[in-house]
């Protein structure tokens, strides 16, 4: 029964189209949006083991790119979407080439990504082109050619399409040569190098791919809420949300981020009803993250496919 939950998830995802409840559409949209963010992180970090704590940098680049392009240069946001994806990929390539060439791994890489996002936040706060701390307001012109939706269901449909693309990329990683080699790098860098896998190039490519996907999520955000500021775009909370979603559900899996997004939103909304104190969400995130690392290193998906655990059992049996 539990094996078929993705079918249930797809059905549930389609339900809001049949209803006119704004609440239901919003809930589904935000959950799918989190899943998209989680999948963006998951592509590099779940499959490649690149522990990024600063993925907001790609999200922010996408959001600012589309906002600046249309408010300053009058470029249609539909063109901004691929442009933002390219910028996200470029940022991933630059960050990856610099960090991996220097041999940064694990927590050192995590710190560098955190700093990278923070630098972008400060830049966005002080530069003219980003309008500093004021942020950028995108004028409201709801129409499909303008990438703005009068009906939330339109935006939701687009989130679902991009989520499907991101999941398609994850599915490709699971069955392709590139994905297999990326997982090998995650599992053991020395062994991977000995078998002819170029470490820096493989990890950089993964980060670029992940940056592209995450930047498209930034574009969606800007077009849905029509406002971007440095904290929304590059804030650490966004980075934490991405990695939480992927880790709760199961990093390195196709459906993990979807599962993680559903669970995280359930927890979040319940907690918000019970305790409405500012600063409570980050604390809750921290607690969840600790619990996941301690008790469910493979996420909820790891419960369904207990690969690591069965390995240990088989060792005991042998």
């Amino acid at each position: 029964m539990l094996r078929y939950w993705p079918i249930l998830a797809v059905v549930a995802a389609l339900l809001p189209f049949a209803s006119s409840s704004q609440f239901l559409v919003n809930l589904a949209m935000l959950t799918a949006f989190s899943a998209l963010l989680g999948q963006g992180w998951n592509i590099a970090c779940g499959f490649g083991g690149l522990t990024s704590f600063g993925h907001a940098v790609f999200f922010g680049i996408g959001a600012y790119a589309v906002a600046i392009m249309q408010t300053r240069f009058g470029i249609n946001p539909w063109l901004g979407l691929p442009a933002a994806a390219i910028l996200g990929a470029a940022a991933g390539a630059v960050l990856g080439a610099a960090a991996f060439r220097a041999g940064l791994r694990g927590s050192y890489f995590a710190l560098v990504t955190l700093a990278f996002a923070e630098v972008f936040r400060i830049l966005a706060n002080s530069l003219d082109i980003t309008k500093g701390g004021l942020g950028i307001l995108i004028p409201l012109h709801p129409s499909l050619p303008n990438f703005q939706f009068a009906d939330r269901r339109g935006a939701y449909a687009l989130v679902l399409v991009l989520l499907a693309v991101a999941m398609g990329i994850a599915a490709w990683l699971r069955r392709s040569r590139f994905g297999a080699r990326l997982v090998a790098v995650r599992e053991n860098e020395d062994a991977a190098a000995a078998l002819g896998i170029p470490l820096v190039r493989t990890k950089t490519q993964a980060l670029a791919l992940s940056g592209a996907v995450t930047a498209t999520a930034g574009v969606l955000y800007a077009q849905m809420f029509l406002y971007v500021d440095p904290n929304i775009a590059f804030g650490a909370e966004r980075s934490v949300e991405m990695l939480l979603v992927a880790m709760i559900g199961g990093a390195g899996t196709v459906w993990g981020p979807v599962l993680g997004a559903i669970v995280l939103h359930l927890i979040q909304d319940t907690a918000r009803m019970l305790i409405d104190t500012p600063g409570f969400a980050p604390m809750l995130y921290g607690a969840i993250l600790l619990a996941i690392i301690a008790f469910l290193p493979n996420g909820i998906a790891g419960l369904r496919l207990p690969r690591r655990r069965s390995a240990r059992e088989e060792v005991r049996r042998a």
Binding site: A184, E187, N188, D190, A191, L195, I197, A311
Partner: peptide, 15 residues
Amino acid sequence: QPFAGLSVAENIRVG
């Protein structure tokens, strides 16, 4: 240095 999370065949396949 096995890729511990992978099956034996998947390990060899990386090569």
